[in-house]
Nucleic acid binder design. Structure first.
Lengths: 102, 102
DNA sequence: CGTCTCGGTAAGTCGTAACTTACGGTTCGT
DNA sequence: ACGAACCGTAAGTTACGACTTACCGAGACG
């Protein structure tokens, strides 16, 4: 979902403040329809919502979904780095440093 | 870098324990050269190192680089979620650094 | 010394997603 | 009511990357 650089840029800009499509397109090196398509992806992922204001359509980040996504990502990292217990995060809750090679 | 599912799988498996190429290929639905190419990407990113052991080549995660990458990623999220100060709950477990929003 | 396993690289195919142009619909302003 | 601004969608092109087959080098082992 955030695998695309343009999408990360849009995400970051929406994180600063809500923006209209034409506004985003003006700050990105891509065309307006391209922005629309990226926004469609982000919207179908639930991380953005749109509000119609006149002729403009204001897009903003959806905090709950964003946090849910981040949690999912943190879970991946937690699992991935579990084997590095000693090297990585000193996690007092989870004492599983028993990974040794004989 | 971790935008590809196969690469995430390889990353996760290497997180469990170091493995040889043929070993990884045996657990993945892709061919051995494909694994080699993914490993090349991961290696050029610095997150894995390889050690020659006989005819086999053992790949393992490089903790420092992995942590650096995670830090970079955390920085992105920190910037992204900066505007959501009130909504983002402080996370005592994870390494999210202190955030003070006036 | 022959061979067998392991692994990197090259070349080529193929699917997909990112992008552009073109068009139609909706709302605001005059 | 007419034009302008804003935006979504369709259709089509293109670039990229993931994958496979084929080939070759390096070490182990009889």
């Amino acid at each position: 979902m955030l695998g695309d650089p343009s999408r990360r840029l849009i995400f970051a800009k929406l994180a600063e403040r809500p923006r209209a499509v034409v506004e985003l397109a003006g700050e990105l090196p891509i065309s307006r329809p391209a922005v629309s398509q990226h926004l469609r992806v982000l919207k179908s992922a639930g991380v953005v919502t749109d509000e119609v204001r006149g002729t403009r359509r204001i897009y903003r980040l959806e905090p709950a979904a964003v946090l849910a996504f981040k949690d999912q990502l943190d879970a991946f990292w937690h699992r991935a780095l579990a084997g590095f217990g000693d090297v990585v995060t000193p996690d007092p809750l989870e004492g599983s440093p028993g990974e040794d090679q004989p």
